[in-house]
Computed example of a mutant assay.
Amino acid sequence: MYEAVIAELNHLDGPESLAPLVTDLFCGNIALVSSFGAESAVLLHMAASIDRSLPVITLDTGKLFSETIAYRAQLTALLGLTDLRVVTPQADVLRVLDGAGSLHRRDPDRCCHIRKVLPLENALTGFKAWISGRKRYHGGLRADVPTLEETDGRLKIDPLARFTRRQIEAYLDYYDLPRHPLLEKGYHSIGCAPCTVQCGSADNPRAGRWSGLSKMECGIHRSPIASRNSAPSAS
């Protein structure tokens, strides 16, 4: 469906990639998904420079660091974002499947599914394209991430996929963007508080996520079709 768009824009990165997608090709039908994590300020700044009214979807799992919530408010105000959509898990699903709030300890994949994957699928309903901040230098399953791809009928855009760590740092410095407050405490990649530790390095920033487990991703970057087929029920 989107082969022509991919062929035309696949060689572009950063704002050069975003601008035609946000203001023309998918105007009104595109959203940015942000964790407001360690490097989120770069992509959010790029998007706000193009269109501050671009819908920004963020997942509040109920397990976030207080510092992330404060950072979200800081960046939203600083960048003038006018359509921030804070998405939360369904209360009835949490009540049935994670009433004690401890599911992350015994089944982290299922916890991510009900707190991240399902809420994001609902939030993306009606959009034809979405933007994420994955980068190849993070390694693992992200080492070959494309800048543009079609996933379950939507165009998925990763305008920072080919950016290096130095480019990210240079962008933050050039625009004097605030860093996530947990960076100075030794966190290199920041997710939910129970599943993120002070670990990792500049070359392997995601080492602190689900440390000690084989798990590398929360699941939102897998096919939405597969996610729906395995969706848990609260009934």
Rank of each mutant, 00 (worst) to 15 (best):
V145S: 03
D51W: 10
T76Q: 10
A161K: 01
K63R: 12
A207T: 12
S17H: 07
N122A: 15
A38Y: 03
G37T: 03
L160N: 02
A161C: 09
T125L: 15
A234I: 10
H221D: 09
A47F: 04
R106Y: 05
A31E: 01
P224M: 07
F127A: 11
A161Q: 05
L44R: 03
L75H: 02
G212R: 10
D173W: 09
T147Q: 07
D109M: 06
V86S: 04
A73L: 09
C112F: 06
R136V: 06
R52D: 03
L124C: 07
K63F: 15
A129T: 05
I190N: 00
C111E: 05
D173L: 14
D107Y: 09
A73T: 10
I30L: 01
S230R: 14
P159G: 05
L81I: 13
C111Q: 09
A123D: 07
F163C: 08
P119N: 03
H180T: 02
P178D: 07
H221K: 11
A38Q: 02
S227V: 10
I168C: 15
G208Q: 08
L84N: 00
L94R: 07
R134S: 08
D83M: 04
H11S: 15
R162T: 11
R165P: 09
R134G: 04
G62P: 06
A73C: 07
T147E: 02
A161I: 06
W130S: 08
R222W: 11
S34P: 00
W210P: 08
P159D: 04
S235K: 14
A123Y: 03
D158A: 15
S214K: 14
C199M: 14
D176Q: 15
R179N: 12
A77P: 00
R52E: 11
T125V: 12
L182M: 10
E121M: 13
M46A: 07
L213M: 15
K185I: 02
K128F: 06
A41H: 02
R162M: 10
K135F: 09
D13S: 15
S53K: 14
A202Q: 12
Y174N: 13
L12M: 13
R142I: 00
R154F: 02
Y71H: 10
L213T: 13
H180V: 01
V5F: 12
P55Q: 07
R222Y: 12
S40A: 14
T82R: 13
S132H: 11
L81S: 05
T82I: 04
D92E: 14
L160I: 09
C112T: 02
L94K: 03
S132P: 04
T164E: 09
D173K: 12
A193I: 00
R106Q: 09
D173R: 12
I190V: 08
S189P: 01
P224S: 08
I69A: 05
A234C: 14
G212S: 12
S230W: 09
L182P: 04
Y2L: 11
M216A: 14
V42E: 00
